[in-house]
Design a binder for these strands. Structure first.
Length: 243
DNA sequence: AACAGTCCCAACCGCGAATGA
DNA sequence: CTCATTCGCGGTTGGGACTGT
């Protein structure tokens, strides 16, 4: 087994630290709160962060008078209390972006979330597990199988594109970003409509959304959209799979 | 109305990486 | 270089909400 000195040191530290913390907690009978957050706790956290900013979560927790772990505070803030969090159904466009980016990057939820303003990695992860994996289960195929990936690429995504185009007056610009290298590429005639649309939706780090811009300005792409289930019937999907 | 089964999401956990002393 | 602490990610789970019988 190859293990670096640093990794070894980290392991030792981790074990020692955990044991010490458990011991101290036992001795002092500190009751670290777990489970759902109360309104009071939320208010404490929000008001503390609005005054002092975020970061240094362990000390923040203590200073704010919360009997929570730093981790718990961080999670609550990032996934729920942040002012720019978006709630509600995942729109068609967002579904499309999730499918597209997941096909490129796999379960890199935080990376995918960076391209969906206001959505958290947790939300996307939950969405994938509850909706997409459910479909794979229904179709009796593995979510990572080529068969299922082909279904997504050749059936779901084009269908989403159709639906998006029919609900909004979407036009495509010839220039768009590639998320891999954040460089502007030019759509060619061989580019499929779904690929072209995907590239139009997200950008690199300094997100410039291309056609997404006009949609966010004038349209309602961020509003809740149809669920996957409304795009086709299960029979239709099965028929396609048997081809 | 009552119960069972399923779905969904907030929250937790473990781990590795990064950072600071 | 070592050790301590913090951060962030991805996987998992508990329990409330919802649905069907």
């Amino acid at each position: 087994m190859n293990i670096s000195r640093t990794e070894f040191a980290n392991c030792k530290t981790l074990i020692k630290h955990k044991e010490e913390v458990e011991e101290v907690e036992k001795k002092m009978e500190i009751e670290i709160r777990r489970g759902p957050w109360t309104v009071e706790e939320d208010m404490k956290l929000v008001s503390y962060i609005s005054l002092h900013g975020e970061g240094r979560w362990n000390s923040l927790s203590r200073s704010a008078g919360l009997n929570r772990t730093g981790k718990s505070c961080r999670l609550r803030w990032l996934n729920y209390l942040r002012p720019d969090i978006r709630r509600g159904d995942i729109s068609l466009q967002e579904q499309f972006i999730i499918l597209e980016l997941h096909s490129r990057w796999g379960n890199r939820w935080s990376k995918i979330a960076q391209h969906l303003p206001g959505r958290t990695d947790n939300e996307i992860k939950n969405y994938w597990r509850t909706r997409v994996q459910k479909h794979a289960k229904l179709l009796k195929c593995d979510v990572n199988s080529k068969q299922f990936k082909d279904t997504i690429k050749h059936l779901w995504m084009p269908r989403l594109v159709e639906r998006i185009a029919s609900t909004q007056n979407v036009t495509f610009t010839p220039n768009h970003y590639s998320p891999e290298n954040s460089s502007v590429t030019t759509a060619t005639s061989s580019t499929s409509s779904s690929e072209s649309m995907a590239s139009s939706f997200y950008g690199g780090d300094q997100v410039k959304y291309g056609t997404l811009d006009h949609m966010t300005n004038g349209g309602d792409w961020l509003n809740g959209g149809d669920a996957f289930e409304t795009l086709w019937s299960f029979d239709e999907l099965n028929k396609w799979l048997l081809q």
